[in-house]
Design a protein around this nucleic acid. Sequence first.
RNA 1: GGGCGCAUAGCUCAGUUGGUUAGAGCGCGUCCCUGAUAAGGACGAGGUCCCAGGUUCGAGUCCUGGUGCGCCCA
Length: 1040
Amino acid sequence: MFDPVSNKIDFPHNEEEMLAFWEAQGIFQKSLDQRADDEEFVFYDGPPFATGLPHYGHLLAGTIKDIVPRYQTMRGKYVERRFGWDCHGLPIEALAQDALGLAGTTAIVEAGVDVFNEKCRSMVQTYVNEWRKTVTRMGRWVDFDNDYKTMDPDFMESIWWVFQQLWDKGRIYKAHRIMPYSWKLTTPLSNFEANRNYKDVQDPAITCRFKLSDESLFGANAYFLAWTTTPWTLPANLALCVGPEIDYVAVKDLSDDVVYVMAEARLASYFPKADAYEVLKTVKGSDLKGQGYEPLFAYFADHENSFQVLNDDFVSTGDGTGIVHMAPAYGEDDYRICRDAGIELVDPLDAEACFTSLVPEFAGQLCKDADKGIIRTLKDAGKLVHQSTIQHSYPFCERTDTPLIYRAIEAWYVKVDDLRENMQGLNDQVHWMPEYVGAKRFGNWLGDANDWNISRNRFWGSCIPVWVSEDGEDSICMGSIEELEKYSGVKVDDLHKHILDKVVFEKDGKTYRRTPEVLDCWFESGAMPYAQQHYPFNDPEGFQNRFPADFIAEGLDQTRGWFYTLMVLGTILFDKPAYKNVVVNGLVLAEDGQKMSKRLKNYPDPNEVINKYGADAVRLYMIYSPVVRAENLAFAEDGVKQIMRDLLIPMWNAYSFFVTYANTDGWEPGEISESENLLDRWILSSMEKLTEEVTEAMDDYDLQSAVRPFVHFIEDLTNWYIRRSRRRFWKSEDDDDKHQAYQTLYAVLVTLCKVGAPFVPFITESIYRNLRTEDMPESVHLCDFPHFAGKHRDADLDKQMAVVQTVVQLGRSLRSEYDLKVRMPLKGIHVATRDMSLKQNIDDLKHLVMEELNVKEVWFGEDETALATYSAKPNFKTLGPKLGRQIKLCAAAVGKLTTDEITNVLGGEKLVIDLEGTPFEMTADDLLISRNPREGLAVASEGQIVVALETQLTPELEQEGLAREFVSKLQNLRKTEGLEVSDRIEVRFRGSEVVQAAVSEHRNFIMTEILALAFDFEEATEGEEFELNGEVAQVIIRKV
RNA sequence: GGGCGCAUAGCUCAGUUGGUUAGAGCGCGUCCCUGAUAAGGACGAGGUCCCAGGUUCGAGUCCUGGUGCGCCCA
């Protein structure tokens, strides 16, 4: 006996039971243990930040990260799945800052880095339990107990090893980088952070003049004009820049005979009146290259290579003068262009962006506040030619709402720009899903990869393991804790900044201190393949089997993130890609196509959706969408509901049907005998086809394609196999046939559970658990994935059944058109088709049609012409290449063909048409023939099939129809009276003479159908009154 | 500003190497069926395949240029 199954299934509740079962029996662990000696399938889990609750994007990625390992496990691989946590970085620091009420880096330093870092450490765990709960509830099997955290000492030690590798290979260097900087927080921000808070502000816009050194060019009184909205950068000016292709003019101001140099295109804005100036000369920017000028301020007058005109294409004539003032410490282009010209930057601002003693005149003033004084000084010195204000949008610090400045920050870099081709080559070995993300998006990105800035001027992170001598001359890079201990004699077991910065040692008379920066947390996630296993300190040989990964999966937004950092480090360390297969998922948006927003509440709470429809439905909804191929998904709760109704409920109903009748019959799974029944063979063939399609799609990591064939299969199973086999289960007198029906449906359901298990782990487990016999594994997830050996595949049968389904569809359509209920038996249906492969199983096929359409006979024939006329079109696919332009003539000729002519061609005759005087020969293959039902007949056609329904009714047929109506009413009555399917009844009835006649004629049939033991006609019967095809009857039933 | 992608029915999406009636499911309307099914079936309405050019005998599909949206970068 199977456990009784209700068709009223509560999926979420059922899932909770399965979770409890997995937990109690340790099924996940068993699924690992039983593959312990098998080949490894290596999966790397990208670590999420632990600073918020999981959202749909995580659920999606988590589902993909669950399906593939489950599938591979069932295919016989050992798949270790360790959860990872990204513990370091700004998100967690921000939480800690809020918790401690610390506004910026100064406040953190004052409060103590140790206090701050320990707060960060304590807060990392804040959301872990919530994550574990939700991830587990989604059915994802992943090891939380043996997780890796980027703040673990082992992990951090491996980071050192990785860093030292880069160091030893000469790939680490220090340079400046222009970054948005908050003087209030005294910290640089990322571009991303800076982009989030633009405001419209008014700033000064001034034009200054820079005196040319070479008086031979335009005379003794000639100046370059340059425009700026940041006057405070002028004290640090070291060069001017012009566009080499831009035309510049030297114009004499006729009011004072001073000569100014500026872009021709900007002339009108400075000299609106044409009679106020005289153009002396026009030159290209490239002609001005190398010209010297007198510094505006004297502070850096002796600076090497400075105060000359440079060339660069970035200069535009959109505003200003077409000549750009360069302060390399305060602009990205400035920095780049000056560096290339051999000009070292000067930065006379302190950490709080106040001028230092290098600029004594403004020392102690905040840079922005110094604007006024600087402008006044320039004005007094006669160096200011124009002054106004400009309104523009400018980035502000999110936390303090003070304007950001751009300034040079010392940073550590990994050199990667010489590895572009190497990385692209390795990337070609990676299988991407979808393919274009790897080939185009990621490939292009690798193609112009820039050196990687890996340092952060922050506190909570892995430390750069470099100790620098106090004179800055020597550096020592540590690759392990042991190495540090050797140098310092200090024992350390925690590698965070507040510990390590206290480790100071002497070597050869010099004192060494650690460089203050911490590592970008992307460096840690990129080093995760090594660090999670504590490589190379732990089991370096075993590492060979666990690198690279067979599979990773993340969102499209990781193209420049994890996918990239894994690739960079894999390339440098081992000259290998770090992963072989990648599934890239798209963004999950709100139903309206907007981003999901907590503030707008434009999406349902994930936990509520799971608790309403179940995790299986949510998983399936997401996977059966293009979001698993990097496209966006507008998440619709209704879509989840739909998936449940389309797939999960029908599957459950098929199962519930089986168990109900198997229990009624006391059927038990037994020895397997090959069924001869056509439907059985067909559904087994379909099952194997499904297995094959799912396997192929999964081996290609195409999850959406793997799910698609389930839809069709479930449809075939429930609405064709079971529908057409129903009577075999509950009315069959042939025990062998009944046994084969049970055996087949049983086998199909068990196999379906196994094939579906990776995708919908709960419902399949629940069904499997009830169906399994003692000798089978206790969980479907401990089973092997089914093979598709081709044992049951029968392509001919698939095709024949498709024809039968078409015939039935056409027959139903005709019944509907002629208003003939299916309960009314009809004489028969004619099926005409030239495809006579049907003949093979014609008797069985006939019976399917007869039962489904309720007709007494099916006549198969080849001659369609009695039922339909033909018309033809050329087969453009075959004729197009042969005929080219002439195909239009051909089409005209073919369109005129008569039914008889087409019949002849179908019979094998060649068709010759005239094409501009040339005969052209065609065969039946060159024609596309459509069948058009003849007028006045009940005929319908589709493709090569034509059917004709015999619509005439006879008294006998009408009588039988009435009997069937009677049965139908009684079945409904049984149902409303709450009888069990196997209950026997007594019936008393009365009715019109017509009814009486029909009932007595079909008495045995009726009694069998409704399980009546007694069936009596009574003149005066109370009870339910029915209308049967216009006749009246009254019935009383009683359970025996 | 650059790279990549997406745009097909009211909605969610299929649509092979270009081939002549562009499909499915849901939703909607009408009708039917029902002793496995919170189901099922038939029929119907609903399309400028984002726009404009081009290549071709033939373009949803290929090319060029736009528009809108998204991701990443600057």
